[in-house]
Computed example of a mutant assay.
Amino acid sequence: MSSRASTFAALGAASALLMVTACTAGTSSGTTSSPGSAVPAAATTTDPHIGAPPGAEVLARPAVGEPFKLTIDYSNTSALDEFEVTVDEVRCGEPLDPKALAHAADPGTEPPPEEGKQYCVVSMEVRNAGKSEADWSADDAITLNVDDTAYSPTQSDNELAGLYAQYWSDQGKTDPSFGINPGSRSPEHAVVQIPVGDEPTTVWVASGNLLESIDGVEPGYLVQLRTPGQS
Protein backbone atom coordinates (compact mmCIF):
# COMPACT_ATOMS: atom_id res chain seq x y z
CA MET A 1 0.00 0.00 0.00
CA SER A 2 1.26 3.47 -0.88
CA SER A 3 2.20 5.99 1.78
CA ARG A 4 -0.72 8.16 0.66
CA ALA A 5 -3.18 5.27 1.00
CA SER A 6 -1.76 4.42 4.43
CA THR A 7 -2.28 8.02 5.52
CA PHE A 8 -5.95 7.98 4.38
CA ALA A 9 -6.50 4.65 6.16
CA ALA A 10 -5.05 6.04 9.39
CA LEU A 11 -7.21 9.15 9.14
CA GLY A 12 -10.29 7.02 8.54
CA ALA A 13 -9.57 4.88 11.57
CA ALA A 14 -9.06 7.96 13.73
CA SER A 15 -12.36 9.43 12.55
CA ALA A 16 -14.19 6.22 13.31
CA LEU A 17 -12.63 6.13 16.78
CA LEU A 18 -13.77 9.71 17.44
CA MET A 19 -17.33 8.83 16.35
CA VAL A 20 -17.45 5.81 18.65
CA THR A 21 -16.10 7.90 21.54
CA ALA A 22 -18.71 10.61 20.94
CA CYS A 23 -21.53 8.08 20.82
CA THR A 24 -20.29 6.45 24.02
CA ALA A 25 -20.13 9.83 25.78
CA GLY A 26 -23.69 10.60 24.66
CA THR A 27 -25.00 7.31 26.03
CA SER A 28 -23.22 7.83 29.33
CA SER A 29 -24.70 11.31 29.70
CA GLY A 30 -28.18 9.97 29.00
CA THR A 31 -27.79 7.28 31.63
CA THR A 32 -26.60 9.75 34.24
CA SER A 33 -29.69 11.92 33.84
CA SER A 34 -32.19 9.06 33.80
CA PRO A 35 -34.72 8.96 36.68
CA GLY A 36 -33.45 5.62 37.92
CA SER A 37 -29.97 6.91 38.64
CA ALA A 38 -30.73 10.50 39.57
CA VAL A 39 -29.41 11.70 42.92
CA PRO A 40 -32.35 12.28 45.34
CA ALA A 41 -33.24 15.92 45.79
CA ALA A 42 -32.84 15.68 49.57
CA ALA A 43 -29.21 14.70 49.09
CA THR A 44 -28.38 17.57 46.75
CA THR A 45 -30.21 20.47 48.40
CA THR A 46 -28.05 23.17 49.93
CA ASP A 47 -30.89 24.70 51.97
CA PRO A 48 -30.46 23.49 55.58
CA HIS A 49 -33.96 24.70 56.47
CA ILE A 50 -35.91 22.88 53.76
CA GLY A 51 -39.13 21.60 55.34
CA ALA A 52 -39.63 24.57 57.65
CA PRO A 53 -42.65 26.82 56.97
CA PRO A 54 -41.75 29.89 54.90
CA GLY A 55 -40.60 32.68 57.15
CA ALA A 56 -40.33 30.50 60.26
CA GLU A 57 -37.36 30.80 62.61
CA VAL A 58 -35.59 27.44 62.86
CA LEU A 59 -34.47 27.12 66.48
CA ALA A 60 -32.46 23.93 65.89
CA ARG A 61 -32.19 20.88 63.64
CA PRO A 62 -32.17 17.91 66.07
CA ALA A 63 -31.79 14.32 64.95
CA VAL A 64 -34.16 11.46 65.72
CA GLY A 65 -33.72 10.55 69.38
CA GLU A 66 -32.28 13.96 70.29
CA PRO A 67 -34.46 15.93 72.76
CA PHE A 68 -35.31 19.60 72.28
CA LYS A 69 -37.18 22.09 74.43
CA LEU A 70 -40.48 23.77 73.59
CA THR A 71 -41.16 26.99 75.48
CA ILE A 72 -44.78 28.07 75.05
CA ASP A 73 -45.91 31.49 76.22
CA TYR A 74 -49.41 32.88 76.21
CA SER A 75 -50.50 36.38 75.28
CA ASN A 76 -52.97 36.65 78.16
CA THR A 77 -50.67 35.48 80.96
CA SER A 78 -47.06 35.66 82.04
CA ALA A 79 -46.91 31.90 82.63
CA LEU A 80 -44.71 29.70 80.46
CA ASP A 81 -45.12 26.02 79.61
CA GLU A 82 -41.92 24.11 78.96
CA PHE A 83 -41.64 20.66 77.45
CA GLU A 84 -38.77 18.45 76.41
CA VAL A 85 -39.78 16.60 73.24
CA THR A 86 -37.99 13.73 71.54
CA VAL A 87 -39.01 12.30 68.16
CA ASP A 88 -38.22 8.61 68.59
CA GLU A 89 -39.15 7.27 65.15
CA VAL A 90 -41.33 7.68 62.08
CA ARG A 91 -42.85 4.59 60.45
CA CYS A 92 -44.62 4.73 57.08
CA GLY A 93 -46.53 2.20 55.03
CA GLU A 94 -46.97 -0.25 57.90
CA PRO A 95 -50.21 -1.36 59.59
CA LEU A 96 -51.31 0.78 62.51
CA ASP A 97 -50.67 -0.66 65.96
CA PRO A 98 -53.38 -3.32 66.61
CA LYS A 99 -53.29 -2.48 70.32
CA ALA A 100 -54.35 1.05 69.45
CA LEU A 101 -56.95 -0.10 66.92
CA ALA A 102 -58.55 -2.19 69.67
CA HIS A 103 -59.92 1.11 71.00
CA ALA A 104 -61.66 2.02 67.73
CA ALA A 105 -65.44 2.16 67.39
CA ASP A 106 -65.07 -0.96 65.24
CA PRO A 107 -62.28 -2.65 67.24
CA GLY A 108 -59.34 -3.93 65.25
CA THR A 109 -60.42 -2.30 62.00
CA GLU A 110 -57.95 -0.01 60.26
CA PRO A 111 -59.72 2.58 58.08
CA PRO A 112 -58.13 2.89 54.64
CA PRO A 113 -56.03 5.99 53.94
CA GLU A 114 -56.90 8.36 51.13
CA GLU A 115 -56.37 6.98 47.64
CA GLY A 116 -52.69 6.96 46.76
CA LYS A 117 -51.67 7.75 50.34
CA GLN A 118 -50.04 5.79 53.16
CA TYR A 119 -50.14 6.24 56.91
CA CYS A 120 -47.06 7.47 58.74
CA VAL A 121 -46.91 7.31 62.54
CA VAL A 122 -44.65 9.81 64.32
CA SER A 123 -43.76 8.49 67.79
CA MET A 124 -42.58 11.03 70.38
CA GLU A 125 -41.86 11.30 74.09
CA VAL A 126 -42.94 14.45 75.91
CA ARG A 127 -41.61 15.51 79.32
CA ASN A 128 -43.01 18.42 81.30
CA ALA A 129 -39.90 20.52 81.98
CA GLY A 130 -41.85 23.36 83.60
CA LYS A 131 -43.02 24.23 87.12
CA SER A 132 -46.70 23.31 86.89
CA GLU A 133 -49.12 21.02 85.11
CA ALA A 134 -49.25 21.76 81.40
CA ASP A 135 -50.68 20.28 78.22
CA TRP A 136 -49.39 19.93 74.67
CA SER A 137 -50.64 18.11 71.59
CA ALA A 138 -49.01 17.34 68.26
CA ASP A 139 -52.36 17.49 66.43
CA ASP A 140 -52.00 21.08 65.18
CA ALA A 141 -48.32 21.69 65.89
CA ILE A 142 -46.40 19.45 63.48
CA THR A 143 -45.97 18.67 59.81
CA LEU A 144 -44.32 15.64 58.23
CA ASN A 145 -42.27 16.75 55.25
CA VAL A 146 -41.06 15.19 52.04
CA ASP A 147 -38.30 17.64 51.14
CA ASP A 148 -40.14 20.98 50.78
CA THR A 149 -43.70 19.55 50.77
CA ALA A 150 -45.42 19.64 54.17
CA TYR A 151 -48.22 17.27 55.20
CA SER A 152 -50.40 18.02 58.25
CA PRO A 153 -52.59 15.56 60.17
CA THR A 154 -56.23 15.62 59.04
CA GLN A 155 -59.16 15.38 61.43
CA SER A 156 -59.45 11.64 60.77
CA ASP A 157 -55.67 11.28 61.27
CA ASN A 158 -55.99 12.96 64.67
CA GLU A 159 -58.78 10.56 65.59
CA LEU A 160 -56.43 7.66 64.85
CA ALA A 161 -53.71 9.29 66.95
CA GLY A 162 -56.31 9.46 69.73
CA LEU A 163 -56.53 5.66 69.67
CA TYR A 164 -52.82 5.50 70.51
CA ALA A 165 -53.45 7.93 73.40
CA GLN A 166 -56.27 5.71 74.72
CA TYR A 167 -54.04 2.64 74.61
CA TRP A 168 -51.23 4.35 76.53
CA SER A 169 -53.73 5.77 79.01
CA ASP A 170 -54.66 2.16 79.81
CA GLN A 171 -50.97 1.62 80.59
CA GLY A 172 -50.97 4.52 83.05
CA LYS A 173 -49.41 7.05 80.64
CA THR A 174 -51.57 10.17 80.42
CA ASP A 175 -51.86 11.83 77.04
CA PRO A 176 -49.95 15.16 77.19
CA SER A 177 -52.97 16.89 75.66
CA PHE A 178 -54.85 16.23 78.94
CA GLY A 179 -52.06 17.75 81.01
CA ILE A 180 -49.04 16.21 82.73
CA ASN A 181 -47.23 17.26 85.89
CA PRO A 182 -43.67 18.59 86.13
CA GLY A 183 -41.11 15.84 85.53
CA SER A 184 -43.69 13.43 84.11
CA ARG A 185 -43.12 11.78 80.74
CA SER A 186 -45.75 10.57 78.30
CA PRO A 187 -45.80 9.15 74.79
CA GLU A 188 -47.35 11.26 72.04
CA HIS A 189 -48.24 10.09 68.53
CA ALA A 190 -49.16 11.83 65.32
CA VAL A 191 -50.66 10.09 62.30
CA VAL A 192 -50.05 11.75 58.93
CA GLN A 193 -50.80 10.62 55.38
CA ILE A 194 -48.23 11.09 52.61
CA PRO A 195 -48.16 9.68 49.04
CA VAL A 196 -47.34 6.00 48.62
CA GLY A 197 -43.69 5.58 47.66
CA ASP A 198 -42.55 8.83 49.26
CA GLU A 199 -40.19 8.85 52.22
CA PRO A 200 -40.35 11.67 54.78
CA THR A 201 -37.20 13.72 55.27
CA THR A 202 -38.03 15.97 58.25
CA VAL A 203 -40.59 16.65 60.95
CA TRP A 204 -41.40 20.28 61.77
CA VAL A 205 -42.41 20.79 65.40
CA ALA A 206 -43.70 24.28 66.19
CA SER A 207 -42.64 25.86 69.47
CA GLY A 208 -46.26 26.48 70.36
CA ASN A 209 -49.67 24.86 70.38
CA LEU A 210 -50.31 25.78 66.74
CA LEU A 211 -48.25 26.10 63.58
CA GLU A 212 -49.31 29.76 63.35
CA SER A 213 -50.45 32.31 65.90
CA ILE A 214 -52.03 35.73 65.49
CA ASP A 215 -48.50 37.08 65.21
CA GLY A 216 -47.64 34.82 62.28
CA VAL A 217 -45.85 31.52 61.77
CA GLU A 218 -44.38 30.07 64.96
CA PRO A 219 -40.67 29.29 65.33
CA GLY A 220 -39.86 25.64 65.74
CA TYR A 221 -37.56 22.67 65.35
CA LEU A 222 -36.73 20.84 62.13
CA VAL A 223 -36.13 17.21 63.11
CA GLN A 224 -33.86 15.43 60.63
CA LEU A 225 -35.00 11.97 59.55
CA ARG A 226 -31.99 11.46 57.26
CA THR A 227 -28.32 12.18 57.64
CA PRO A 228 -26.87 14.54 54.99
CA GLY A 229 -26.43 12.74 51.68
CA GLN A 230 -28.58 9.76 52.73
CA SER A 231 -31.12 8.70 50.11
Rank of each mutant, 00 (worst) to 15 (best):
residue 94 E to G: 07
residue 58 V to F: 11
residue 194 I to Y: 04
residue 15 S to P: 02
residue 162 G to W: 00
residue 160 L to I: 13
residue 109 T to K: 11
residue 110 E to L: 02
residue 175 D to G: 00
residue 74 Y to L: 08
residue 112 P to E: 11
residue 92 C to D: 09
residue 105 A to T: 03
residue 46 T to Q: 14
residue 125 E to R: 03
residue 223 V to T: 02
residue 44 T to Q: 06
residue 174 T to S: 10
residue 181 N to G: 06
residue 135 D to L: 11
residue 18 L to W: 14
residue 208 G to R: 04
residue 197 G to P: 03
residue 208 G to I: 11
residue 52 A to D: 08
residue 188 E to V: 01
residue 229 G to H: 14
residue 126 V to H: 12
residue 116 G to R: 09
residue 19 M to A: 14
residue 132 S to R: 12
residue 79 A to V: 14
residue 101 L to Y: 05
residue 213 S to P: 05
residue 173 K to V: 00
residue 224 Q to W: 05
residue 45 T to Y: 02
residue 75 S to W: 05
residue 103 H to E: 13
residue 43 A to D: 07
residue 140 D to F: 11
residue 98 P to Q: 02
residue 52 A to W: 05
residue 191 V to D: 02
residue 155 Q to I: 15
residue 132 S to D: 14
residue 71 T to S: 15
residue 223 V to H: 05
residue 104 A to R: 10
residue 114 E to P: 00
residue 34 S to K: 03
residue 135 D to R: 13
residue 165 A to H: 01
residue 158 N to T: 05
residue 178 F to Y: 12
residue 133 E to C: 13
residue 185 R to Y: 02
residue 105 A to W: 06
residue 203 V to H: 01
residue 78 S to R: 10
residue 196 V to P: 07
residue 103 H to R: 14
residue 180 I to C: 00
residue 188 E to M: 03
residue 100 A to D: 03
residue 39 V to R: 09
residue 225 L to A: 04
residue 47 D to H: 09
residue 84 E to K: 15
residue 63 A to M: 10
residue 188 E to W: 02
residue 68 F to N: 11
residue 228 P to T: 09
residue 211 L to M: 15
residue 45 T to N: 04
residue 162 G to M: 00
residue 167 Y to P: 01
residue 213 S to T: 15
residue 92 C to V: 08
residue 134 A to Y: 07
residue 49 H to E: 11
residue 15 S to K: 12
residue 132 S to M: 11
residue 118 Q to E: 12
residue 8 F to M: 05
residue 27 T to Q: 07
residue 129 A to L: 05
residue 52 A to N: 05
